[in-house]
Structures are given as structure tokens and as C-alpha cells.
């Protein structure tokens, strides 16, 4: 039976070697220029299939009051740095104005009071973080489609970009958080600029004075501390060019998965 023993020994050695090879191989591939691009094809594939499956605007699941999480976790920034934001907090966001511009006919500025006076939508939805956790909250806000109707997007506008007040990666070279969504998501009935969470004003850790809700995508798309909305044809010239802060740091632009 020596040969069987030998086989087993050789197999175990081989298996160990193979898995080490697999690991270093995968890590090497991750560091090449071309392989991550091959991997990234899944994004286009999934997004195309999703769009094919949902020709009608599909709605995210809505929950009941009883489902609301007693604690709504804040992730990333919980208090933007800088004097400007501090001053806004001090005044209760009375002097805050949302700037809406870019490829629109009638750029405008809207105060929090003006946004609150617009048609509102309240929805109890589940927030899914890319890290894996979920929390359920009751959001109140103005549908983005109503805001866009005010400014009249030009036909060339393809994306809506949200510029935020929170600087990421230290104050030496501040990179402001930003995100972008396409017009389909922008005009979706559940896409709102939320100023309320669970019946109260939106808390600072969750993005006061307003945050985006784009319910069919992961949490990092839901930009907090939104200061300015810009309609663009392409986001290639904004910051890192990938359409968002996390996208510039390697994450997928399409976060429906």
C-alpha cells in the first residue's frame, strides 16, 4: 500500500501547492492592468440583464412601521468637517440652499423650507450597505422628479450628479463625496431627496439637511449632505471620473447588486 500512501502524500502536497498558487495567482492577476477590467465586465452584464428584465419601473419593497429598525446606522461620515457646515448646523440649515444646475433650462436654488413645501413622499424602505448590513427606515422627502421638473433638464442631460459637503480622506487634500445616477433612477417615483427620517428631521449622522434615496441600489449611492445637484452628459471630467467617491476608489458605478 506504499503507493497509495505516496499518492495521498503527493495529493496533499499538490493541493497545498495548488491553493497557494491559486491565491498568489489571483492576487497577481488583481494587480495587473487588464484582469480587473475583464472582471469588471460583470457590471455591464448584470446592469443590462436587470434593465432587460425590468422594462417597467420596478419598485423597491416597502415595509410597515413595525419593521422600522430602532437604530439607523450611520456609515462613513457622521459629521462633516469644516466651518461652513458647522455654521449651517448652527443656523438649523436656515441659510442652506440646494443649488440645481448644469444641463438645465432654468437653474435654481431651493431652501429647505421651499423643498418642504413641495409634494412629498414617505416610504419605509430597507437600506442595504455594500458591506452587507441592512437597516429599515421611514424616509420623507421630495421626489427628485419634482425638482427636475422645476429646472427643466435639457435633452442632452444623461446623469444627475450630487455634490456633498463631506470631505473624505483627510483635510489636507479634501475629496468631497459625490455620487451620480442615470435619468431612469432620477425620475423613479421612489427616488427622493429625504429631509426626514422616522418622523423627525434628518439627523446629522444620516446626512442633514438632505440625502438622496435611490432605493434599488446599495447604500453608497444614497449621497448624504447634498449641497449641489448638477445635470451632466458625462461624469468623466468630475473628480476621478468614475461617477462617485467610492467609484473613484474602485467600487462599481452600478450598485444594484
Amino acid at each position: 500500500m506504499r503507493s497509495a500512501e505516496e499518492s495521498k502524500r503527493r495529493f496533499l502536497l499538490g493541493a497545498g501547492g495548488l491553493s497557494a498558487l491559486l491565491l498568489t495567482g489571483c492576487d497577481r492577476l488583481s494587480e495587473t492592468e487588464w484582469f480587473p477590467k475583464v472582471l469588471r465586465t460583470h457590471e455591464t452584464l448584470s446592469r443590462s440583464v436587470h434593465q432587460l428584465l425590468g422594462s417597467r419601473p420596478s419598485m423597491a419593497q416597502e415595509f410597515t412601521e413595525a419593521d422600522v429598525s430602532p437604530f439607523f446606522r450611520s456609515n462613513g461620515t457622521s459629521m462633516p468637517e469644516g466651518e461652513e457646515y458647522k455654521a449651517l448646523v448652527k443656523s438649523g440649515f436656515a441659510n442652506w440652499q440646494l443649488e440645481v444646475g448644469g444641463l438645465v433650462e432654468e437653474p435654481t436654488r431651493l431652501s429647505l423650507a421651499e423643498l418642504r413645501a413641495m409634494p412629498r413622499r414617505t416610504q419605509i424602505t430597507r437600506h442595504d450597505c455594500v458591506e452587507g448590513w441592512s437597516a429599515i427606515g421611514k424616509w420623507t422627502g421630495v421626489p427628485l422628479s419634482n425638482v427636475l421638473a422645476l429646472v427643466k433638464p435639457r435633452p442632452k442631460a444623461r446623469y444627475v450628479v450630487f455634490h456633498c459637503a463631506d470631505a473624505m480622506g483627510g483635510s489636507l487634500t479634501p475629496e468631497y463625496y459625490y455620487e451620480s445616477i442615470d435619468m431612469d433612477d432620477a425620475l423613479h417615483p421612489q427616488t427622493i431627496l429625504a429631509y426626514g427620517l422616522n418622523g423627525n428631521d434628518l439627523p446629522i449622522p444620516n446626512g442633514a439637511p438632505i440625502r438622496l434615496r435611490v432605493e434599488r441600489q446599495l447604500g453608497y449611492k444614497h449621497a448624504k449632505y447634498v449641497m449641489r445637484i448638477e445635470l451632466v452628459e458625462s461624469f468623466a471630467n468630475i473628480a476621478g471620473g468614475q461617477g462617485g467617491y467610492w467609484e473613484d476608489n474602485g467600487y462599481q458605478w452600478y450598485a444594484g447588486i
Binding site: 492576487d27 488583481s30 472582471l39 448584470s46 467610492w246
Partner: peptide, 17 residues
């Protein structure tokens, strides 16, 4: 894990591909 060093975005690319 794949990759060995921590990168959630890269792990997601491997996983979904």
C-alpha cells in the same frame, strides 16, 4: 480569501464575474 489583502471592491469584482 480572494484577494488576500483587504479590498471589498476587488472581492466583489471577482465574486460577480
Amino acid at each position: 480569501t480572494i484577494p488576500g489583502g483587504y479590498s471589498l471592491s476587488m472581492a466583489r469584482d471577482w465574486h460577480f464575474f
